[in-house]
């Protein structure tokens, strides 16, 4: 299933947030979105997932979601959004319970996604007992449990320290190598965007417009941290973003 963002614009009252965004999200690819703070990345992601309606334009879905997908468009949140009163397994069960799968099937799914995210031993732990990286892995496991067509990830790693971030990034790359999932990956971090994105969409400062779309041909699992090609792409992205970021930084917050 592919998604297409079609001529999308949005304003909150007088505040123009996004302007004429058109974008393809082909199945099996990760699209990274970067842009200065406040340019509307999270807002765009909310439109893509249908949590909000844009003022203009639309999101078009091409093809059917895969068989057995319980929640085709599934978010992974920056702050994990785990229910603190439920265990790891309970948090995953939450998104399955409404589908009437029967407890055996539900249990099977939970065991499966926990294994895939290397969380099996933490099945009965409460969120407060987990580190930030573990919590995000639980959130990813929860997303995988509903067998999504597209994962919508809003800065999933930015609440984590840099070592954990590296580890989790490796996990995500592994996961992609195995499952070839489709994702929209919003981030501030150029290195993340370059490591994980098949395409990198650069947005301008608010109102967000597409400044540039960079496609990287190197397969995800072949990318190395020290790869000079990636470093040069990162350098280029930074030169594009630098001015935008600086200007955005000087704007009054409530513009």
């Amino acid at each position: 299933m592919d998604l297409r963002v079609d001529a999308l614009s949005h304003r909150y009252g007088n505040l123009e947030v996004l302007s004429d965004i058109s974008l393809d999200i082909p199945a099996g690819q990760v699209v990274s979105i970067i842009g200065p703070s406040g340019c509307g990345k999270s807002t765009l992601l909310r439109f893509i997932g249908g949590l909000e309606r844009p003022s203009e334009g639309q999101i078009i879905q091409r093809g059917q979601p895969p068989e057995g997908s319980l929640n085709p468009l599934t978010y992974v949140f920056q702050d994990f959004a785990l229910l603190p009163w439920r265990t790891v397994a309970g948090n995953i069960a939450l998104v399955l319970e409404d589908h009437g799968l029967g407890s055996a099937r539900q249990d099977e799914i939970i065991t499966n996604v926990l294994a895939r995210t290397k969380l099996s031993e933490f099945r009965d732990a409460l969120p407060k007992q987990l580190s930030g990286g573990m919590k995000q892995r639980v959130a990813i496991a929860r997303a995988l449990a509903v067998n999504p067509a597209v994962m919508l990830m809003d800065e999933p790693l930015s609440a984590l320290d840099s070592q954990t971030r590296e580890l989790l990034m490796d996990d995500l790359i592994d996961l992609w190598a195995r499952e070839r999932f489709t994702a929209v990956y919003v981030t501030h971090n150029l290195a993340e965007a370059v490591r994980l994105g098949h395409q990198i969409v650069v947005l301008s400062r608010r109102p967000g417009k597409i400044r540039e779309i960079i496609t990287i041909e190197t397969p995800l699992d072949a990318r190395r941290r020290s790869d000079p090609e990636l470093a040069s792409i990162e350098e280029r992205l930074w030169s594009v973003m630098r001015d935008e970021a600086q200007a955005a930084d000087l704007e009054l917050v409530d513009g």
Partner: peptide, 20 residues
Amino acid sequence: TLIRMGQSFSLSWASIVRKI
């Protein structure tokens, strides 16, 4: 954000109230 999470997983209204 928890409620939004519930909605993003298409939980029913009753489930969101009862479980979140």
